[in-house]
Write a protein that binds this DNA or RNA. Sequence first.
RNA 1: GCCCGGGUGGCGGAACUGGUAGACGCGUCGGACUCAAAAUCCGAUUCUGGUGACAGAGUGCGAGUUCGAGUCUCGCCCCGGGCACCA
Length: 821
Amino acid sequence: MQPTHVGPMDRSYRFADIEADVQQRWAEADAFRVARDDREKFYCLSMFPYPSGKLHMGHVRNYTIGDVISRYKRMCGLNVLQPMGWDAFGLPAENAAIKNGVPPAKWTRENIAAMRDQLKQLGFAYDWSREIATCDPSYYRWEQWLFTKLFEKGLVYRKESVVNWDPVDQTVLANEQVVDGRGWRSGAIVEQRAIPQWFARITDYADELLDDLDKLDGWPDAVKTMQANWIGRSTGLEIDFAVAGHDAPLTVYTTRPDTLHGATYMALAADHPLVAAAADADSALAAFVEECRAGGTAESELTTREKKGYRLPVDAIHPLSGDKLPVFAANFVLMGYGTGAVMSVPAHDQRDWEFAKAYDLPIVSVIADDNGVPGDVSEAAFVAKGPLVNSGEDDGKDFDTAFNDIADRLEARGVARRKTQYRLRDWGLSRQRYWGAPIPIIHCDECGAVPVPEADLPVVLPEDVTPEGAGSPLPDMPEFVNCSCPKCGKDAKRETDTFDTFMESSWYFARFTCPDADAMIDDRAHYWMPVDQYIGGIEHAILHLLYARFFQKLMRDVGLAQADEPFKALLTQGMVLKDGAKMSKSKGNTVDPQALIETYGADTVRLFSMFAAPPDQSLEWSDAGVEGAHRFLHRLWRLVATHVEAGIVAPAATAEGEAAELRRKLHETIAKVGDDVGRRYTFNTAIAAIMELVNALGRIDDTPSAEWQAVRQEALEAIVRMLAPITPHVGDQLWRALGREGLLLDAEWPVADEAALVRDTLTLVVQVNGKVRARIDVPADADRDTVAQTALAEPNVVRHIEGKDLKKTIVVPGKLVNLVV
RNA sequence: GCCCGGGUGGCGGAACUGGUAGACGCGUCGGACUCAAAAUCCGAUUCUGGUGACAGAGUGCGAGUUCGAGUCUCGCCCCGGGCACCA
């Protein structure tokens, strides 16, 4: 190929024009619309945003990571699906409505339009034809449909459950709206109030959700550990303690029946029936129960409260010794967990120990330490397992033997059962809010709770409503509430609670594969699912990801889905910080992506977001760092312009002498960047390596030989392609400046030339007693003895081993020599 | 309180499998260009001592394993995420 003359290239990098042009080119080519074909697929999904108004830096970071992976996989030849949508139901829309008098529907849709525009400015390669907004009836109708299927299968049910009740505003509060036990608006002390709510039987799937974690090779161990601990499968013993003077026993669950001999008291939840019965005759106890009800329902609040109890006028009977045990009502035992009663072994449980100290209850150590004497419980509980002591016939037994012997004896008497229990609780689906998907149930005096028939779905949420203050407006809307029973036809009332918004985010990934399906999902999901790479914040490690996994299994079990798990690989991105703290309006340390896009362009914002930190760590935002990223793009632009002015040539395929060294650097970089982008997802180190290569290229003479020119052409083409996923706009422009046809996004990802990587000498480090004393150059094929002899000949090495015995010589091939004296 | 992470120069970070601590970028200092400034380019930049070659110290703190530890083990401290109605 002869040098081609291309018209003079503008020497300055005009990002605004370039980005608009390139985005137009993509639009004209409809470049991101995808469909099933014969190629291997890759489904890359970033967690969709709540449409809060405008993008923040966390979004920019999240979506840039997803876009880089998507574009890289596309250049590798895969059929890449990357969709985007809106998690459009939620509390902020109602708050905005109260504040500004705007209907949540209008507010939400305006925010969506604004944020969609921003995403387009950033140049993300989304197939916008698949866009979903979860507040559209065409979307939520299918989760209403699934709910009715689950109702038929008995997988949803109604039970009483406590909520945060604001007695002044007369409304239910979210945990977020409870600050220090008080309502955020009224300032009133929040009370726990039990109301009937719908639940999904996620505990029926607890074993599968736990066991399938082992299949998720592409998930971070930290997330799998958190989910496993959250599910919290344990094997233990359910034990009945007789109560003196009562027929009904107190049933408790324990994972440590080996410590049963050390049980010295019992603790009951404040709303346990036995407590309620006693409170009728004791006004002080009734006051204590009332006090336990004050404050929010968040677990963090309940478990950090000062532990308080109230002695009940009953005694339990120890099932082994027959001793009487005092029974307390306690504020740290919760009715919703297990049986609402616990046996307390203060010697071997820290919480029980603290309570026993406060209430002067006996602490009996029944587990021996390593020295065979009862564990020391003077300063704290002794929680380790060990042989039993002070345990009568069970003395000396280890944990397993004691567990089994005690279980066998109690089971034989019919007062205990071996039981597998979970920490995981069923998923409460009901919310007493307006801006959510209506729960498709009709309450009939005759027939009870009746699911809305499929033909009547969706139950559409009225949208021309502006909540004005506390509480959902739905119960006050007769046109919504009044209806007839689908079973008997009599007058009935519609359920006015809406779904938890985790419902919508638990299946959107599947809907993206077939957004226009006339069913929840259709067989297109079988091609695209599971998601090959899911990307989102670590804050979703438990709840969202667990519910989504649960929904995938539910959809499979109603015959819609094939995959057992929705997300093959997961990347949890870190937070974006400014001045060491999470960006927030209240701290005044926010950075607006929009202003940055306007000042520096999308490519600079994308580049800095990827360069500043590895994706899974927190990222410290730096305006100066953004300048640096911008400078780099200017430098690259000028480098290409200079090259193009000298003349475009065919890229080199081989080189000699110094040009060969540059070419080796090029192919080492290609190998490293391919590994960093394709396997490690460490985009920061990939960019650093490309910067090094650009620096090396910048050092060559401006008017080089034909050989230099060819190597430079080869290098620039590779650099532009390696940067293509990160800075796609400037890349596309430079790709054509270098004389290449077609869109850069369909160019092939560069592959390293093994022949260019060969080295004939290596530099090794020489250590004496682990300290670096010299560096030596040796032939790449030198044997150990040669290497050792070369090392021993170094003057500075000689100085450090003189007069000492050489005890050991360690040679690590290609790395170092360590001489031990 | 419980579960899960993280802590490396002035700053963001690199060191992937136990093998040269500080790549790359920012900042700072010095120089070139300019009447001058900006921009750009070149050089220096962990700390201490030394003109220097070099030497000593150094990855939150304290122990340990190893020829060798930022990396592995144990115990602490601090920061962050989650805790079921924020999303």
